[in-house]
């Protein structure tokens, strides 16, 4: 928390939602960098530093990934699966942040070793509090080996 800037990778296809997430996280100043990608392909490109995301300085390895499931091109679950299957990436906490409360998605996400699964609350106050808590928990309270 101290000394090193924290980076969150936000994978969210809905720009409005992304804006809401960013505003809340910024407000509580839990992260220094929030990098937003809109689909699964971009998310994987980011974590593998491919294409537009090869610049390490602007796109550092994330300390937390907030992952929506319903994504164009490559589905969020597929992104999760690939990250958790990769030994170099699996340590990154991935929090599924989605509109879906389908049990199938929930079960599948945990099967793919999601670190947490939360649904976006419709109520704004709840939305704000969730993101603040998430930020504090994963970036402040939670101990990481790096």
């Amino acid at each position: 928390m101290i000394g090193r800037p924290m980076t969150i990778l936000l994978v969210e296809d809905n720009p409005d939602h992304a804006e809401l997430v960013k505003r809340n996280l910024e407000e509580f100043q839990v992260a220094n960098h929030i990098n937003h990608v809109e689909d699964g392909e971009a998310a994987l490109d980011y974590v593998y530093r491919r294409g537009a995301y090869s610049d390490h300085k602007n796109f550092p390895r994330p300390d937390l990934i907030l992952l929506d499931l319903r994504l164009p091109r490559i589905d969020g679950l597929e992104v999760l699966k690939q990250i958790k299957r990769d030994l170099t990436l699996q340590a990154i906490p991935v929090v599924v942040l989605t509109t879906s409360d389908a049990e199938k998605d929930l079960a599948q996400a945990y099967e793919y070793h999601a670190n947490s699964y939360v649904t976006k609350p419709v109520n704004f106050e709840n939305f704000s509090r969730l993101l603040r808590d998430l930020g504090y928990y994963w970036l402040a309270w939670n101990k990481r080996p790096w």
Binding site: V122, F124, F127
Partner: peptide, 17 residues
């Protein structure tokens, strides 16, 4: 459920903001 909820979240979220 997702796609109808999604704009709802947006509406409520920005209304709150």
């Amino acid at each position: 459920s997702h796609d109808l909820k999604s704009p709802l979240i947006t509406i409520k979220g920005f209304a709150g903001a």
